[in-house]
Design a binder for these strands. Structure first.
Lengths: 223, 223
DNA sequence: GTCTATACGGAGATAGAC
DNA sequence: GTCTATCTCCGTATAGAC
């Protein structure tokens, strides 16, 4: 309703009048947020533009002006949130090649990944994307590309370097990374993929992860 | 349209007139088949009872007489096909505990599982169930229960026996089975979960599976 | 048990004022 | 750029004849 332009003030009580570009981008963001909530809760088909309208406080016509169609809105919203999600995993990658205690470093890395990837909102996003793959194959490609660039790629580089230094015996670093992920994060992830609402048990997670890392190192560690 | 009652004959050319119960159950089956096809192609919400009507050759009212609502139809169809799918995996389980060459037996077992679970129609079913978990949590429970009873359960028993005989060093058979599945079937399954239409490469699959079994045995085999 | 015809609501999308 | 009001169609579900 434009209420923000009258109510919003800065720290000195001076009203902040957004310039047109900012006003538009605020609406833009409100639409994106509302749409993501609705799509996560209802799935693509059952989500209604009506509900997104109510949630966002923006009129339906405005949404269509900004995004053109329900399909384009869906792709823009989900395609926009995916990289942000995986960007949070990137920082954890750098220390593997330089770690003095490789086992501890791998446990730390995979635990950090698991903590994020098992978050209920991210599990929901994952289910949403998987369920709509047939209708939006682009999202499947994007998910794969993002997770590869942010996670697997850097870890493959680290493994390759560790192999060159004689610390790891990995004939195929790419496959080894897939196996490490599968045997650590993958185990609880599979469980939580099919059961909604159940919290992740911390002790259970630690047990799975450290057992998985031990399994991994039993084969690939240069003793 | 009842054409079957006039055209169907037995091996001697004698017309077969279905009694009412058979006629009803034929319709029932036609509805189930058509519904499964439609749900797999469109997802739950986008699937239309209209389309299921056309595909099945049965009127819409009949479908509602048989199943009551779209939700009940969905649950009946998907809940019915899940056990059939996993029943095909059961025969492969029995030979593990008695195998002379454990590695070969595990490769064989997980390869058989993978060949079935990676089939495009079963991957689609899996995506459908995952995408609808929030609205149909029963299906998630069912999937988990079925896959546990048909696969993990028997394999856990086999591992427990192999441990008792000193052939395997598995402190936690349940976790070990999860890890074996994750590191063999799970690896290609993850890839195919996010990409539709791509065929499974046989050589690639063999490579992943045997590498996964080697990884598993490097830790758990009693040398 | 099965069909045809229809009720009734809500979906996505847009026209036109401001 | 944004809103209100509306168009059009298709969805699920059912009434009533046979």
């Amino acid at each position: 309703m434009g209420a923000e332009t009258q109510d919003t003030v800065d720290q000195y009580g001076i009203p902040i009048i957004p310039d047109p570009a900012d006003a538009a981008s605020r609406k833009h963001q409100a639409i994106v947020d509302a749409a993501l909530t609705e799509f996560l809760a209802e799935g693509y088909s059952a989500a209604s533009m009506e509900a997104i309208t109510s949630r966002s406080g923006v009129s339906k016509a405005t949404i269509y002006k900004h995004f053109g169609s329900k399909e384009r809105l869906f792709l823009a919203v989900v395609g926009g949130v995916l990289p942000k999600t995986y960007a949070g995993l990137k920082p954890f990658n750098s220390t593997i090649a330089e770690a003095t205690d490789l086992r501890a470093a791998l446990v730390q890395l995979t635990t950090d990944w698991a903590r994020i990837l098992l978050r209920p909102d991210i599990m929901s996003l994952r289910r949403l994307v998987i369920g709509e793959i047939d209708r939006f194959p682009q999202l499947g490609q994007l998910w794969y590309r993002v997770s590869y660039e942010m996670n697997n790629g850097p870890l493959i580089d680290a493994f390759t370097e560790l192999r060159a230094r004689g610390a790891l015996d990995v004939p195929d670093p790419g496959l080894a990374v897939q196996q490490l992920v599968a045997v650590t994060v993958g185990v609880p992830q599979l469980v939580h993929t099919f059961s909604t609402g159940t919290e992740v048990d911390g002790a259970e997670l630690d047990r799975m992860i450290s057992s998985g890392v031990d399994l991994f190192l039993a084969r690939y560690a240069r003793s």
